[in-house]
Simulated assay, not measured.
Amino acid sequence: MKPPFSWDAYSDQPALLKDKAYKNAMRRAQWREHLKTLGTALFALPLALCAMPFFKPKKRFELGLCVNLDKGHEQVALVEELGVKHLLCRFPLWEMEHLEAYATFIKSFGNDKTVVVCVLQDREHIENLPLTALHVRKVFEVLSPLAREFQIGNAINRAKWGFFSVGEYLRFFECVQAVRDTHFPHLKLLGPSVIDFEYHYTARALFHGFNTRFDAHTALLYVDRRGAPHNKQLGFNTKAKIAFLYALAKLSPKSSDDLYITEVNWPLSNTAPYAPTSEKECVDEATYARYLKAYVTTAKQSGKVRKLFWHQLIAPGYGLVDNREGLHKMQGFDTFKKLLQESAR
Rank of each mutant, 00 (worst) to 15 (best):
E281P: 03
D181R: 14
F54V: 09
V305Q: 07
L320R: 04
E263Y: 01
A15W: 01
L251I: 08
L134D: 15
G162P: 07
G235D: 06
L170I: 05
K250I: 09
A289L: 11
I156N: 01
Y260C: 07
L327Y: 11
F43C: 12
L35G: 06
L251Y: 05
W94L: 08
E80G: 06
R60Y: 11
P273I: 10
P267D: 02
H183I: 04
L320Q: 08
L49D: 09
G153K: 00
A48C: 13
S256N: 11
R60M: 11
L35R: 10
C66P: 00
F43V: 15
Y274M: 09
T132N: 01
L131I: 04
Y291V: 02
G162Q: 00
G332T: 06
A103K: 07
K241N: 08
A147T: 06
G191E: 02
P145N: 08
G303F: 14
H328V: 14
K36N: 13
H34E: 11
V194R: 02
T238H: 13
F309A: 07
L131V: 06
G39H: 09
Q312W: 05
A51G: 08
P14K: 01
A29C: 03
Q233M: 13
F173R: 00
T262Q: 02
V179Q: 04
R204H: 13
I152H: 02
E168V: 02
M96D: 03
L63E: 02
H311E: 08
L340P: 04
A272W: 12
Q301N: 15
F309I: 05
L245S: 13
T104K: 13
Q177Y: 00
V223G: 09
D257C: 12
W310Y: 15
A103T: 08
A315G: 14
Y318G: 07
R290N: 14
N128R: 12
A25E: 13
R90T: 05
G72T: 08
T37P: 03
K36G: 01
A294H: 04
V283C: 09
L340N: 04
V139A: 10
A286G: 11
K23I: 05
N111F: 10
H208W: 10
S11R: 13
V116M: 15
K232L: 10
A289F: 09
A48L: 11
L47Q: 13
N154R: 05
V119W: 06
K23C: 11
N211E: 12
H186L: 10
K18G: 15
F173Q: 00
L35V: 13
D284Y: 00
Y274P: 07
F172A: 01
T114S: 14
F336C: 03
K71E: 15
L88K: 15
K2P: 00
P3I: 05
N154P: 01
R180N: 03
K304H: 04
R27F: 11
A289C: 04
K188N: 11
F210D: 01
R32A: 15
L245D: 07
R306P: 05
R158K: 13
D181H: 09
A41H: 04
G64A: 09
L129M: 08
